[in-house]
Every structure is written in structure tokens, then in C-alpha cells.
Design a protein around this nucleic acid. Sequence first.
DNA 1: CGCAACCTTCCTACTGGTAGGTAGACATTA
DNA 2: TAATGTCTACCTACCAGTAGGAAGGTTGCG
Lengths: 192, 192
Amino acid sequence: MKSTASTSEKILDVAQSLIVAGGYNGFSYADISAAIGIRKASIHHHFPAKAELVAVLVDRYRRQAEAGLNALHEQVASPAEQLQSYLNYWQTCIRDASQPFCVCAMLAGEMQMLPDEVASRVRSHFHSLAAWLTSVLRAGAEQGLFRLNRQPEDEAQMLLASVHGAMLSARALGDPELFSTIVTTQLAKLTK
Amino acid sequence: MKSTASTSEKILDVAQSLIVAGGYNGFSYADISAAIGIRKASIHHHFPAKAELVAVLVDRYRRQAEAGLNALHEQVASPAEQLQSYLNYWQTCIRDASQPFCVCAMLAGEMQMLPDEVASRVRSHFHSLAAWLTSVLRAGAEQGLFRLNRQPEDEAQMLLASVHGAMLSARALGDPELFSTIVTTQLAKLTK
DNA sequence: CGCAACCTTCCTACTGGTAGGTAGACATTA
DNA sequence: TAATGTCTACCTACCAGTAGGAAGGTTGCG
């Protein structure tokens, strides 16, 4: 189905994989140009400025993420399974190297030198994710599935940090399985 | 005492703070030049190539870190206090914004496009840190200070990931206190 | 229908500016 | 005198972004 994707979507796809690999300053219009066989100027037609391209990209990423998480709420009943599905998603992405890092986690590292329009969107994504995790943990605690020793908000932030930190460690050590090891170890502390 | 620092050390100091802010691709020789009032060419005299500069910088950073951690082993008896001191160090750095991110954690995100000589050093740092944390956790478990429900190696990797993830979240949300909240929540699970 | 005006997309060619890096002169000091 | 450090001046390659035009499709109107 990739052949039916519009040019703008192809640009966003390539840009996203480049950002995941090297961050905001780690890619150029020339890189995208070379990857999809189009001139630099044509990319500027679709996205006049780099900051705008990335802002649109993050919007799309957030929309997809939120849709995925909401789908979990409808398809999977148990909060424990919702949480497991979220972790499995990243486990799969990292194992097959299809997307070995969260776009927003990558950009969060560069926060201080990101254009405002990008930085604010990254910040919003962190808020959304934390809110989703909080609701899952709270529901799970009420059903006696999780044993929280702090507020659901704090436990959610801790879980989120573990996931992002696990991505970083897996990448640093070049060991995709390390991600699974870490999040499993973390999960054990919640369900024990 | 900054005035007595050699030019090379000044260069490394500035480069380090620039890397912490924006990563490997987030700074240039011109940036360093402007910051310490020296010409670009003079920086090339001390560090012919950028990859070499960053490699030396990471070596220095690792040396300082290892010295600090070894000092903890000698000054502080209890593994619990050693761990707390390590976390306090970052807590302070992040709170006063003196160094709100670990150099190697920052570079780890860009692993895929780092020169080999830098990437291998970053990888080594992760190994060292994990090894130190493992030894502290193992000693603490033997003394009954920590309650581990996995191997010390796995718990150490999880703790390390939490610390790096907490740095990321604190930066993404612009809230230094979030770092403390997260690592405290994490610590509670080990000592409980 | 025919045709013109318009729109979208992509192109070549270019701009000003910055990247990392080099050559060689000059000053300071051991 | 020889080494060290800094400088000016410069290089090539690349950066994001612009100007202007060619090709093709769509729409509106006589």
C-alpha cells in the first residue's frame, strides 16, 4: 500500500524514520530528497519550512498514537492487558527495528533547541501519554490488578520514564531484547 | 577557578554543555568559538576533527563519573546511601540546571549516526554504569536493604532506564521536580 | 463541445549562510 | 631556536529556502 501513499505522506514517512534515527538536527531536505527521488524544492512545496514539516509530522504521530490507545480501550477490557498491549507494541517495533524509538522521546532530548511549534507539540504528547497511563493504572488498581504504592499519576510518570529509558538503553547497547527485559522487570513491580 | 582552566578544557566544557543541550549535531565549532572568544581555527588546533573532540570529551566525562562513583564506595558505607547519593547528584544538577542531562544518555539517542569512536565510548559508559549499579544493588540485597524480585543485573538496568527516562520527562515537560518524583517512586519499589 | 483560466506538482537554477576543515603568517615562551 | 598557540584568510560541501517556469489536471463558461 506504500505505492498509493501521497507524496506528502511519503515525505513524512521518510522524515519520521530519519528523526527517529538522528533527531531534528540529524536530517535535511536533501536526505528526504534522495530517499524518495524528488527534488528538494518539491519538498518545500509541500512543507515550506523544516519546523512546519516536523510540526505536521508530530501532529500525525500523536493522532496515530491516540487512535491506537483509544482502540485499546475499546478492544481490550482489562487494564492489565491494555498496559501489556502498549508495551508489546514497542517491544515489536524495537525487535524488528521498524521504529526503534518514539519520535517524541527523541525530540524531547533536543527540547531546548526545538522551534516552539514543535516543542509544544512534544510536550503535549508527554501529557497525553501520562494521562492515558494514569487512567489505565487507576482502573487497574480499582480492580485489584495493580498494587500501587504511590498516586496513579506518579506511577504513570515512572512507567513512562522506564519505557523511554529502556529504548535509550537498548539503543546504547545495541541490544533490542534489553527493552523487553527492562519493561518486564518494571511491570513485575506493579502486578506483584 | 574557571580562569585557570586550559584552553582545551574550556573548549571541552563549552562543548559538553552544548551537547547536553542539543546533541552531537546540535553544536558547531563556530558555537564554541563564539562562547569562549577564540577563532574556529584555534579549536581545530586543539581538536583537529569534531569526532575526535567528542571522543575526548566522552573519555573525560567517563573518567569523572567513574571517579565520583568510586569515591562513593569509599566515603559512604551503606549501598542504600550510595544509591541515594548517585540519585541526589542528578537531582541537584537538574534542579539548578547546571547539567540537566547525562552526556552519554544524550548521545545514546543519536547512536545510529554517531562516529564509531564516539559510539563505542557511549556504549562503554552504559556498561560501566550498569555494572556499578548492579554491584550496589547486589550488596544492598545481601545486607537486606533492598528487596529485589529479579536478578541484580536486570534491576540495575531498570533503575538506569528510569533515571534516563526521568531526565527525558523532566525536560519534555519543563519540570525539574518531575525527575525527583520519578526516581523517588522507583526507589520506593526497591526498598519497600 | 472547445477553450481559457486556474491549480497542483514538480522541476532547474540559484541565494545567503553555515558546516567542518586547511594553509600559512605571526607572536609568545621555553 | 624550536615548539606552541593563535590568528587571518580561505576552501569545499552542505544547509534551508526562493524564483520562476514547465507539465498536467480540473473547473467554469460561451
